[in-house]
Design a protein around this nucleic acid. Structure first.
Lengths: 205, 205
DNA sequence: GCTATATGTAATCATCGATTACATCCACAT
DNA sequence: ATGTGGATGTAATCGATGATTACATATAGC
Protein backbone atom coordinates (compact mmCIF):
# COMPACT_ATOMS: atom_id res chain seq x y z
CA UNK A 1 0.00 0.00 0.00
CA UNK A 2 3.10 2.21 0.18
CA UNK A 3 4.46 2.99 -3.26
CA UNK A 4 2.72 1.57 -6.24
CA UNK A 5 1.55 5.08 -7.01
CA UNK A 6 0.98 5.29 -10.72
CA UNK A 7 -0.02 1.96 -12.13
CA UNK A 8 -2.94 1.84 -14.48
CA UNK A 9 -4.48 -0.95 -12.49
CA UNK A 10 -5.20 -0.47 -8.85
CA UNK A 11 -4.31 -3.91 -7.63
CA UNK A 12 -7.29 -4.71 -5.45
CA UNK A 13 -9.83 -2.04 -6.07
CA UNK A 14 -12.70 -4.08 -4.69
CA UNK A 15 -11.48 -4.07 -1.12
CA UNK A 16 -10.25 -0.51 -1.40
CA UNK A 17 -13.72 0.53 -2.49
CA UNK A 18 -15.31 -1.24 0.44
CA UNK A 19 -12.90 0.48 2.81
CA UNK A 20 -13.56 3.86 1.25
CA UNK A 21 -17.31 3.24 1.51
CA UNK A 22 -17.06 2.52 5.22
CA UNK A 23 -14.93 5.62 5.70
CA UNK A 24 -17.42 7.89 4.00
CA UNK A 25 -20.39 6.40 5.80
CA UNK A 26 -18.60 6.86 9.09
CA UNK A 27 -18.10 10.50 8.25
CA UNK A 28 -21.36 11.43 6.62
CA UNK A 29 -23.85 8.67 7.28
CA UNK A 30 -25.37 6.04 5.03
CA UNK A 31 -27.22 8.68 3.12
CA UNK A 32 -24.82 11.18 1.64
CA UNK A 33 -22.84 8.32 0.21
CA UNK A 34 -22.10 8.49 -3.49
CA UNK A 35 -20.32 5.98 -5.62
CA UNK A 36 -18.48 8.85 -7.24
CA UNK A 37 -16.83 9.89 -4.03
CA UNK A 38 -16.01 6.31 -3.20
CA UNK A 39 -14.23 6.20 -6.54
CA UNK A 40 -12.49 9.49 -5.94
CA UNK A 41 -11.25 8.42 -2.53
CA UNK A 42 -9.90 5.22 -4.01
CA UNK A 43 -8.18 7.26 -6.69
CA UNK A 44 -10.02 5.87 -9.68
CA UNK A 45 -12.49 7.16 -12.23
CA UNK A 46 -16.19 7.49 -11.42
CA UNK A 47 -17.13 4.48 -13.50
CA UNK A 48 -14.49 2.13 -12.18
CA UNK A 49 -16.45 0.80 -9.18
CA UNK A 50 -19.06 -0.63 -11.52
CA UNK A 51 -16.51 -3.08 -12.82
CA UNK A 52 -16.52 -4.71 -9.40
CA UNK A 53 -20.03 -3.98 -8.16
CA UNK A 54 -22.88 -3.90 -10.59
CA UNK A 55 -24.73 -1.26 -8.62
CA UNK A 56 -24.54 0.92 -5.57
CA UNK A 57 -26.68 -1.64 -3.76
CA UNK A 58 -24.20 -4.36 -4.67
CA UNK A 59 -21.38 -2.30 -3.18
CA UNK A 60 -23.32 -1.76 0.01
CA UNK A 61 -24.19 -5.44 0.11
CA UNK A 62 -20.51 -6.28 0.03
CA UNK A 63 -19.96 -3.89 2.90
CA UNK A 64 -22.83 -5.54 4.75
CA UNK A 65 -21.31 -8.98 4.26
CA UNK A 66 -18.04 -7.84 5.76
CA UNK A 67 -19.86 -6.15 8.64
CA UNK A 68 -22.01 -9.18 9.29
CA UNK A 69 -18.91 -11.35 9.55
CA UNK A 70 -17.61 -9.11 12.31
CA UNK A 71 -20.96 -9.15 14.07
CA UNK A 72 -21.05 -12.94 13.99
CA UNK A 73 -17.48 -13.04 15.24
CA UNK A 74 -18.32 -10.69 18.10
CA UNK A 75 -21.29 -12.83 19.05
CA UNK A 76 -19.16 -15.95 19.06
CA UNK A 77 -16.43 -14.38 21.15
CA UNK A 78 -19.03 -13.27 23.66
CA UNK A 79 -20.18 -16.81 24.34
CA UNK A 80 -18.72 -18.88 27.15
CA UNK A 81 -16.25 -21.50 25.98
CA UNK A 82 -17.64 -24.01 28.41
CA UNK A 83 -20.38 -25.76 26.50
CA UNK A 84 -22.15 -26.88 29.66
CA UNK A 85 -22.94 -23.33 30.67
CA UNK A 86 -26.45 -22.38 31.62
CA UNK A 87 -28.23 -21.97 28.26
CA UNK A 88 -30.08 -18.86 29.33
CA UNK A 89 -26.85 -17.26 30.53
CA UNK A 90 -25.38 -18.13 27.17
CA UNK A 91 -28.27 -16.38 25.44
CA UNK A 92 -27.68 -13.36 27.60
CA UNK A 93 -24.03 -13.36 26.59
CA UNK A 94 -25.01 -13.53 22.94
CA UNK A 95 -27.40 -10.64 23.36
CA UNK A 96 -24.80 -8.61 25.18
CA UNK A 97 -22.17 -9.27 22.55
CA UNK A 98 -24.65 -8.32 19.86
CA UNK A 99 -25.56 -5.10 21.63
CA UNK A 100 -22.00 -4.11 22.37
CA UNK A 101 -21.00 -4.61 18.77
CA UNK A 102 -24.04 -2.79 17.46
CA UNK A 103 -23.55 0.21 19.70
CA UNK A 104 -19.84 0.40 19.10
CA UNK A 105 -20.24 0.01 15.36
CA UNK A 106 -23.43 1.93 14.66
CA UNK A 107 -22.50 2.53 11.05
CA UNK A 108 -21.95 -1.11 10.27
CA UNK A 109 -25.00 -2.19 12.18
CA UNK A 110 -27.13 0.26 10.29
CA UNK A 111 -25.99 -1.20 6.99
CA UNK A 112 -26.51 -4.76 8.12
CA UNK A 113 -30.01 -4.17 9.39
CA UNK A 114 -31.36 -1.73 6.82
CA UNK A 115 -32.47 -4.02 4.10
CA UNK A 116 -33.74 -1.36 1.80
CA UNK A 117 -30.22 -0.32 0.88
CA UNK A 118 -28.74 -3.76 0.43
CA UNK A 119 -29.79 -6.86 -1.46
CA UNK A 120 -30.17 -9.16 1.51
CA UNK A 121 -32.06 -11.91 -0.27
CA UNK A 122 -29.53 -11.81 -3.06
CA UNK A 123 -26.67 -12.66 -0.73
CA UNK A 124 -26.51 -16.25 0.39
CA UNK A 125 -23.71 -15.28 2.76
CA UNK A 126 -25.85 -12.77 4.58
CA UNK A 127 -28.75 -15.14 4.94
CA UNK A 128 -26.52 -17.92 6.19
CA UNK A 129 -24.94 -15.76 8.87
CA UNK A 130 -28.31 -14.41 9.87
CA UNK A 131 -29.80 -17.87 10.15
CA UNK A 132 -26.74 -19.01 12.04
CA UNK A 133 -27.40 -16.70 14.95
CA UNK A 134 -31.08 -17.53 14.97
CA UNK A 135 -30.66 -21.29 15.01
CA UNK A 136 -27.98 -20.96 17.66
CA UNK A 137 -30.46 -19.19 19.90
CA UNK A 138 -33.20 -21.68 19.07
CA UNK A 139 -30.88 -24.51 20.10
CA UNK A 140 -30.03 -22.84 23.37
CA UNK A 141 -33.70 -22.24 24.14
CA UNK A 142 -34.52 -25.84 23.36
CA UNK A 143 -31.79 -26.93 25.73
CA UNK A 144 -33.03 -24.55 28.38
CA UNK A 145 -36.48 -26.00 28.14
CA UNK A 146 -35.23 -29.57 28.41
CA UNK A 147 -33.23 -28.52 31.46
CA UNK A 148 -36.47 -27.33 32.97
CA UNK A 149 -35.40 -23.70 33.11
CA UNK A 150 -38.53 -22.50 31.32
CA UNK A 151 -42.17 -22.99 32.14
CA UNK A 152 -43.16 -26.55 31.28
CA UNK A 153 -45.24 -25.86 28.18
CA UNK A 154 -43.21 -22.93 26.97
CA UNK A 155 -43.85 -21.76 23.42
CA UNK A 156 -40.32 -22.07 22.10
CA UNK A 157 -41.17 -20.58 18.74
CA UNK A 158 -42.50 -17.45 20.40
CA UNK A 159 -39.54 -17.33 22.77
CA UNK A 160 -37.03 -17.40 19.95
CA UNK A 161 -38.82 -14.49 18.37
CA UNK A 162 -38.94 -12.70 21.71
CA UNK A 163 -35.21 -12.91 22.21
CA UNK A 164 -34.45 -11.79 18.69
CA UNK A 165 -36.91 -8.93 18.83
CA UNK A 166 -35.74 -7.75 22.23
CA UNK A 167 -32.10 -7.51 21.29
CA UNK A 168 -32.83 -6.26 17.80
CA UNK A 169 -35.13 -3.63 19.23
CA UNK A 170 -32.51 -2.28 21.60
CA UNK A 171 -29.84 -2.23 18.93
CA UNK A 172 -32.14 -0.63 16.40
CA UNK A 173 -33.31 2.01 18.83
CA UNK A 174 -29.71 2.99 19.39
CA UNK A 175 -28.93 3.00 15.69
CA UNK A 176 -32.10 4.92 14.87
CA UNK A 177 -31.17 7.66 17.28
CA UNK A 178 -33.71 6.99 20.01
CA UNK A 179 -31.15 7.77 22.66
CA UNK A 180 -30.61 11.52 22.24
CA UNK A 181 -27.28 11.88 23.95
CA UNK A 182 -24.94 9.04 24.58
CA UNK A 183 -21.53 7.78 23.80
CA UNK A 184 -20.49 4.17 23.39
CA UNK A 185 -19.89 2.33 26.67
CA UNK A 186 -21.82 5.11 28.40
CA UNK A 187 -25.00 4.91 30.42
CA UNK A 188 -27.32 3.75 27.63
CA UNK A 189 -25.34 0.54 27.28
CA UNK A 190 -25.51 0.11 31.03
CA UNK A 191 -29.24 0.57 30.90
CA UNK A 192 -29.47 -1.89 28.08
CA UNK A 193 -27.47 -4.39 30.11
CA UNK A 194 -29.90 -4.15 33.00
CA UNK A 195 -32.89 -4.44 30.67
CA UNK A 196 -31.40 -7.52 29.06
CA UNK A 197 -30.71 -9.11 32.44
CA UNK A 198 -34.29 -8.48 33.54
CA UNK A 199 -35.57 -9.90 30.29
CA UNK A 200 -33.62 -13.13 30.70
CA UNK A 201 -34.69 -13.34 34.32
CA UNK A 202 -38.29 -13.01 33.22
CA UNK A 203 -37.99 -16.09 31.04
CA UNK A 204 -36.82 -18.31 33.89
CA UNK A 205 -39.36 -20.71 35.31
CA UNK B 1 -62.43 17.57 -5.76
CA UNK B 2 -64.61 16.93 -8.82
CA UNK B 3 -64.33 19.77 -11.30
CA UNK B 4 -61.97 22.58 -10.54
CA UNK B 5 -59.85 21.25 -13.35
CA UNK B 6 -57.91 24.14 -14.72
CA UNK B 7 -57.23 26.74 -12.13
CA UNK B 8 -53.78 28.14 -11.82
CA UNK B 9 -53.77 27.52 -8.12
CA UNK B 10 -54.28 24.03 -6.85
CA UNK B 11 -56.31 24.83 -3.78
CA UNK B 12 -54.58 22.72 -1.18
CA UNK B 13 -51.43 21.40 -2.72
CA UNK B 14 -49.81 20.63 0.62
CA UNK B 15 -52.20 17.84 1.56
CA UNK B 16 -52.38 16.61 -2.03
CA UNK B 17 -48.60 16.31 -2.02
CA UNK B 18 -48.62 14.35 1.21
CA UNK B 19 -51.25 12.01 -0.21
CA UNK B 20 -49.29 11.54 -3.42
CA UNK B 21 -46.16 10.85 -1.41
CA UNK B 22 -47.86 8.11 0.56
CA UNK B 23 -49.23 6.63 -2.66
CA UNK B 24 -45.85 6.44 -4.30
CA UNK B 25 -44.16 5.03 -1.25
CA UNK B 26 -46.84 2.37 -1.03
CA UNK B 27 -46.11 1.43 -4.61
CA UNK B 28 -42.35 1.68 -4.80
CA UNK B 29 -41.02 1.95 -1.26
CA UNK B 30 -39.46 4.81 0.64
CA UNK B 31 -36.49 4.79 -1.66
CA UNK B 32 -37.58 5.27 -5.22
CA UNK B 33 -39.50 8.30 -4.11
CA UNK B 34 -38.77 11.50 -5.97
CA UNK B 35 -40.23 14.92 -5.36
CA UNK B 36 -40.65 15.27 -9.07
CA UNK B 37 -43.03 12.38 -9.34
CA UNK B 38 -44.93 13.60 -6.31
CA UNK B 39 -45.37 16.86 -8.18
CA UNK B 40 -46.38 15.12 -11.38
CA UNK B 41 -48.96 13.00 -9.60
CA UNK B 42 -50.40 16.11 -7.98
CA UNK B 43 -50.51 17.71 -11.41
CA UNK B 44 -48.10 20.54 -10.72
CA UNK B 45 -44.66 21.54 -11.88
CA UNK B 46 -41.54 19.93 -10.43
CA UNK B 47 -40.66 23.00 -8.40
CA UNK B 48 -44.06 23.57 -6.86
CA UNK B 49 -43.67 21.27 -3.86
CA UNK B 50 -40.81 23.39 -2.59
CA UNK B 51 -43.25 26.25 -2.00
CA UNK B 52 -44.82 24.13 0.71
CA UNK B 53 -41.93 21.99 1.90
CA UNK B 54 -38.47 23.44 1.95
CA UNK B 55 -36.87 20.09 1.18
CA UNK B 56 -37.61 16.48 0.49
CA UNK B 57 -36.94 15.74 4.15
CA UNK B 58 -39.51 18.36 5.14
CA UNK B 59 -42.09 16.67 2.94
CA UNK B 60 -41.36 13.31 4.47
CA UNK B 61 -41.45 14.83 7.93
CA UNK B 62 -44.96 16.09 7.23
CA UNK B 63 -45.93 12.59 6.14
CA UNK B 64 -44.37 11.23 9.31
CA UNK B 65 -46.35 13.65 11.47
CA UNK B 66 -49.59 12.53 9.89
CA UNK B 67 -48.61 8.89 10.27
CA UNK B 68 -47.58 9.36 13.88
CA UNK B 69 -50.98 10.86 14.66
CA UNK B 70 -52.64 7.73 13.38
CA UNK B 71 -50.26 5.53 15.33
CA UNK B 72 -50.99 7.42 18.54
CA UNK B 73 -54.71 7.19 17.82
CA UNK B 74 -54.46 3.44 17.27
CA UNK B 75 -52.58 3.04 20.53
CA UNK B 76 -55.23 5.02 22.41
CA UNK B 77 -58.09 3.08 20.89
CA UNK B 78 -56.38 -0.15 21.91
CA UNK B 79 -56.37 0.76 25.58
CA UNK B 80 -59.17 -0.27 27.90
CA UNK B 81 -61.57 2.54 28.75
CA UNK B 82 -61.75 1.42 32.33
CA UNK B 83 -58.93 3.26 34.04
CA UNK B 84 -58.74 0.75 36.89
CA UNK B 85 -57.60 -1.99 34.58
CA UNK B 86 -54.57 -4.03 35.44
CA UNK B 87 -51.64 -1.79 34.42
CA UNK B 88 -49.65 -4.62 32.90
CA UNK B 89 -52.66 -5.70 30.84
CA UNK B 90 -52.96 -2.11 29.71
CA UNK B 91 -49.34 -2.14 28.59
CA UNK B 92 -50.00 -5.32 26.69
CA UNK B 93 -52.93 -3.65 24.97
CA UNK B 94 -50.78 -0.71 24.01
CA UNK B 95 -48.13 -3.00 22.63
CA UNK B 96 -50.69 -4.96 20.68
CA UNK B 97 -52.26 -1.83 19.24
CA UNK B 98 -48.83 -0.57 18.27
CA UNK B 99 -47.94 -3.86 16.60
CA UNK B 100 -51.21 -4.17 14.75
CA UNK B 101 -50.93 -0.67 13.39
CA UNK B 102 -47.29 -1.11 12.46
CA UNK B 103 -47.89 -4.36 10.63
CA UNK B 104 -50.99 -3.12 8.85
CA UNK B 105 -49.35 0.13 7.85
CA UNK B 106 -45.78 -0.91 7.14
CA UNK B 107 -45.17 2.04 4.87
CA UNK B 108 -46.20 4.61 7.42
CA UNK B 109 -44.38 2.85 10.21
CA UNK B 110 -41.21 2.77 8.17
CA UNK B 111 -41.36 6.52 7.70
CA UNK B 112 -42.10 7.19 11.35
CA UNK B 113 -39.27 5.07 12.63
CA UNK B 114 -36.56 5.75 10.07
CA UNK B 115 -35.10 8.95 11.35
CA UNK B 116 -32.48 9.31 8.69
CA UNK B 117 -35.09 10.37 6.15
CA UNK B 118 -37.06 12.76 8.30
CA UNK B 119 -36.13 15.66 10.56
CA UNK B 120 -37.37 14.18 13.79
CA UNK B 121 -35.66 16.61 16.13
CA UNK B 122 -36.92 19.48 14.03
CA UNK B 123 -40.54 18.53 14.58
CA UNK B 124 -41.93 19.38 18.00
CA UNK B 125 -45.08 17.49 17.06
CA UNK B 126 -43.21 14.27 16.44
CA UNK B 127 -41.25 14.50 19.66
CA UNK B 128 -44.35 15.27 21.69
CA UNK B 129 -46.26 12.30 20.34
CA UNK B 130 -43.26 10.06 20.82
CA UNK B 131 -42.78 11.19 24.40
CA UNK B 132 -46.49 10.80 24.98
CA UNK B 133 -46.41 7.08 24.42
CA UNK B 134 -43.27 6.65 26.45
CA UNK B 135 -44.49 8.54 29.49
CA UNK B 136 -47.81 6.72 29.30
CA UNK B 137 -45.97 3.44 29.59
CA UNK B 138 -43.74 4.76 32.33
CA UNK B 139 -46.83 5.78 34.31
CA UNK B 140 -48.41 2.37 33.88
CA UNK B 141 -45.23 0.63 35.00
CA UNK B 142 -44.99 2.88 38.02
CA UNK B 143 -48.55 2.00 38.89
CA UNK B 144 -47.88 -1.69 38.37
CA UNK B 145 -44.96 -1.53 40.75
CA UNK B 146 -46.99 0.26 43.41
CA UNK B 147 -49.67 -2.38 43.00
CA UNK B 148 -47.02 -4.95 43.78
CA UNK B 149 -47.23 -6.61 40.40
CA UNK B 150 -43.50 -6.37 39.81
CA UNK B 151 -40.60 -7.63 41.87
CA UNK B 152 -40.18 -5.36 44.87
CA UNK B 153 -37.05 -3.51 43.85
CA UNK B 154 -37.79 -3.49 40.15
CA UNK B 155 -35.67 -1.22 37.99
CA UNK B 156 -38.46 0.83 36.44
CA UNK B 157 -36.15 2.75 34.15
CA UNK B 158 -34.85 -0.47 32.66
CA UNK B 159 -38.36 -1.89 32.44
CA UNK B 160 -39.64 1.07 30.44
CA UNK B 161 -36.81 0.61 28.02
CA UNK B 162 -37.51 -3.12 27.88
CA UNK B 163 -41.13 -2.62 26.91
CA UNK B 164 -40.30 -0.03 24.30
CA UNK B 165 -37.48 -2.08 22.82
CA UNK B 166 -39.51 -5.27 22.75
CA UNK B 167 -42.43 -3.80 20.85
CA UNK B 168 -40.22 -1.63 18.68
CA UNK B 169 -38.08 -4.62 17.87
CA UNK B 170 -41.02 -6.71 16.72
CA UNK B 171 -42.45 -3.90 14.64
CA UNK B 172 -39.11 -3.05 13.13
CA UNK B 173 -38.36 -6.66 12.27
CA UNK B 174 -41.62 -6.82 10.38
CA UNK B 175 -40.98 -3.52 8.61
CA UNK B 176 -37.40 -4.48 7.83
CA UNK B 177 -38.51 -7.64 6.13
CA UNK B 178 -37.33 -10.17 8.69
CA UNK B 179 -40.43 -12.26 8.16
CA UNK B 180 -39.94 -13.62 4.64
CA UNK B 181 -43.48 -14.51 3.74
CA UNK B 182 -46.47 -13.13 5.56
CA UNK B 183 -49.56 -11.10 5.07
CA UNK B 184 -51.14 -8.76 7.63
CA UNK B 185 -53.26 -10.50 10.24
CA UNK B 186 -51.54 -13.72 9.27
CA UNK B 187 -49.42 -16.05 11.38
CA UNK B 188 -46.58 -13.64 12.11
CA UNK B 189 -48.92 -11.33 13.96
CA UNK B 190 -50.24 -14.32 15.87
CA UNK B 191 -46.72 -15.26 16.78
CA UNK B 192 -46.03 -11.70 17.83
CA UNK B 193 -49.12 -11.77 20.02
CA UNK B 194 -47.90 -14.85 21.83
CA UNK B 195 -44.44 -13.41 22.24
CA UNK B 196 -45.87 -10.21 23.69
CA UNK B 197 -48.06 -12.15 26.11
CA UNK B 198 -45.08 -14.16 27.29
CA UNK B 199 -43.07 -11.00 27.68
CA UNK B 200 -45.67 -9.34 29.87
CA UNK B 201 -46.08 -12.53 31.86
CA UNK B 202 -42.33 -12.56 32.46
CA UNK B 203 -42.52 -9.14 34.10
CA UNK B 204 -45.08 -10.22 36.67
CA UNK B 205 -43.83 -10.78 40.18
C1' DG C 1 6.08 -12.76 -27.65
C1' DC C 2 1.05 -12.91 -28.80
C1' DT C 3 -3.31 -12.77 -27.63
C1' DA C 4 -7.58 -13.14 -24.66
C1' DT C 5 -9.34 -11.19 -20.80
C1' DA C 6 -9.58 -8.39 -16.82
C1' DT C 7 -9.44 -3.85 -15.35
C1' DG C 8 -9.63 1.21 -15.58
C1' DT C 9 -10.83 5.73 -18.36
C1' DA C 10 -13.54 9.08 -20.92
C1' DA C 11 -17.63 10.56 -22.49
C1' DT C 12 -22.29 10.65 -22.07
C1' DC C 13 -27.44 10.04 -20.37
C1' DA C 14 -31.47 10.50 -17.73
C1' DT C 15 -32.90 11.72 -13.24
C1' DC C 16 -32.88 14.07 -9.13
C1' DG C 17 -33.02 17.90 -5.45
C1' DA C 18 -32.78 22.52 -5.33
C1' DT C 19 -32.72 27.54 -6.75
C1' DT C 20 -33.98 31.57 -9.34
C1' DA C 21 -36.67 34.70 -12.13
C1' DC C 22 -41.04 35.27 -13.75
C1' DA C 23 -46.27 34.57 -14.24
C1' DT C 24 -50.74 34.33 -12.14
C1' DC C 25 -54.20 34.50 -8.75
C1' DC C 26 -56.45 35.92 -4.46
C1' DA C 27 -57.52 38.94 -0.43
C1' DC C 28 -57.92 43.17 1.41
C1' DA C 29 -57.68 48.17 1.98
C1' DT C 30 -59.22 52.18 -0.03
C1' DA D 1 -64.68 48.64 -8.28
C1' DT D 2 -59.86 48.70 -8.19
C1' DG D 3 -55.29 47.86 -7.80
C1' DT D 4 -51.65 46.46 -4.90
C1' DG D 5 -49.03 43.03 -2.26
C1' DG D 6 -48.37 38.47 -0.76
C1' DA D 7 -49.10 33.77 -1.77
C1' DT D 8 -48.81 30.19 -5.08
C1' DG D 9 -47.42 27.91 -9.34
C1' DT D 10 -44.30 27.77 -13.79
C1' DA D 11 -40.16 27.69 -16.56
C1' DA D 12 -35.57 27.38 -16.91
C1' DT D 13 -31.58 26.01 -15.06
C1' DC D 14 -27.62 24.11 -11.95
C1' DG D 15 -24.65 20.69 -9.92
C1' DA D 16 -24.51 16.01 -8.40
C1' DT D 17 -25.66 11.30 -8.99
C1' DG D 18 -26.27 6.29 -10.75
C1' DA D 19 -25.53 3.99 -14.65
C1' DT D 20 -23.99 2.67 -19.52
C1' DT D 21 -21.05 2.59 -23.49
C1' DA D 22 -16.94 2.69 -26.31
C1' DC D 23 -12.28 2.72 -25.81
C1' DA D 24 -7.47 2.26 -23.64
C1' DT D 25 -4.22 -0.37 -21.01
C1' DA D 26 -2.27 -3.95 -18.32
C1' DT D 27 -1.86 -8.86 -17.00
C1' DA D 28 -1.74 -13.90 -17.43
C1' DG D 29 -1.36 -18.14 -19.99
C1' DC D 30 -0.10 -20.45 -24.03
Amino acid sequence: MTEQEKSYHHGNLASALIAATVEIIDERGVDGLSVREVAKRAGVSPGAPFRHFSSKAALLTAVAEQAMERLVAAVEVAQADDDDTDPLAQIERIGLGYLEWATQNPTHFQIVSSRSLIDFNGSATLRQMNDGIRTRMADLLERAQQAGQLTANADTEALVLSCRAFVYGLARMAADGHFPEWHPNGEPLDLMRRALADFIAGMRA
